[in-house]
């Protein structure tokens, strides 16, 4: 491009010059000058470094600031172990619930026509658009001592708020859209013909689901489960409202990080935080691999 402009300019007739300018202007519309490109790329990288890479490095640096022994000692504290265990339990409950709900919702939306379908799709997205704190408060309103079911629950001696069920419920609510969102477009694109073929070949509903539907959407399911799990383990706002912060009992990892930090126990706080950061990194890698599989699936469909 630059060569061409130089050649034209060397002709030096005014006509040729103006033409060269016009050509350069046209080219500039399509390709930015090198300097501009460099600035944009540098800006993007600098931004990512400061806001993403740096905090990640700081988390690990802080966690290890008193040495590796202090790091492991902090993780071996009973309070820390309880938080890790609770987080895993809550994630297991909410991911399995959302796997079932998400599959059912995606199935309903993708394979059937029914009135109120658009409304259902909007509802599925609700947990994404509402602040997690409000999601938590809803459960307090429902199950708290003053709440709608509070009296009944107290009479029957069932503890939901400030206990595992409450935390699991809030987390499930907040992470509901992940599986459904991953599956709806995939299942819509695949349509119902393979299921119809299976039925006409004599397969029962369950056989059709396990032999035809599920294998077709397995990468999508894994993708949804992965994101759902990452969010479930990292959820703070909604859980904070319903947890009651009982030490060693209802503190999940994100909650414990905050408590420890406020108590100036930096090594312990960042040690737990580093576990969450590692979860994020593993999730990222797994996500990249899954996305590749999903794309391959797409290619196969295109034939």
């Amino acid at each position: 491009m630059t060569m061409q402009i130089a050649d034209n300019v060397s002709l030096s007739s005014p006509d040729a010059k103006s033409r060269a300018h016009a050509a350069a202007a046209r080219n500039n519309l399509r390709t930015e000058p090198r300097a501009v490109r460099l600035v944009i790329i540098t800006l993007a990288i600098a931004f990512l470094s400061v806001f993403v890479v740096l905090p990640l490095v700081v988390v690990f640096a802080q966690a290890l600031s008193k040495g590796i022994l202090a790091y492991f000692a902090a993780l071996a504290e009973p309070e820390a172990l309880a938080a890790i265990k609770l987080t895993l339990v809550v994630a297991a409950i909410s991911v399995s619930l959302n796997l079932v709900f998400g599959l059912v919702a995606a199935w309903a939306v993708a394979k059937f026509e029914f009135p109120g379908k658009t409304f259902l799709i909007t509802l599925i997205d609700l947990p994404f658009s509402v602040s997690p704190v409000i999601s938590g408060l809803v459960f307090v309103l429902l199950f708290g001592a003053q709440g709608y079911f509070g009296g009944w629950l107290r009479d029957h001696d069932i503890q939901i708020l400030f206990a595992v069920p409450g935390i699991a419920l809030a987390t499930t609510f907040v992470t509901f859209p992940f599986v459904a969102r991953a599956l709806i477009p995939l299942m819509q694109e695949q349509g119902t013909q393979e299921e119809e073929a299976a039925t006409s070949l004599g397969a029962s509903g369950l056989q059709t689901f396990f032999r035809v539907t599920l294998p077709n959407i397995k990468w999508g399911v894994l993708y949804g489960v992965l994101l759902c799990n990452a969010r479930a383990m990292g959820e703070f706002g909604a859980v904070s409202v319903v947890s009651g912060h009982i030490r060693g009992e209802t503190n999940t990892m994100p909650l414990l990080v905050e408590i420890l930090y406020n108590e100036y126990q930096f090594v312990a706080a960042f040690a737990i935080a580093s576990l969450l950061a590692m979860l994020a990194l593993i999730t990222l890698i797994a996500k990249t691999i899954l996305e590749r599989h999903l794309d391959e699936g797409q290619d196969v469909n295109d034939h």
């Binding site: 393979e194 073929a197 299976a198 070949l201 032999r211 294998p215």
Partner: peptide
Amino acid sequence: VGFVFQHYALFRHMSVFENVAFGLRV
């Protein structure tokens, strides 16, 4: 009833052999 679809509706994750065997296996 045997049904043949315009867009084939073959089971994309199964080999040709397994596609044909499907009706017998279920």
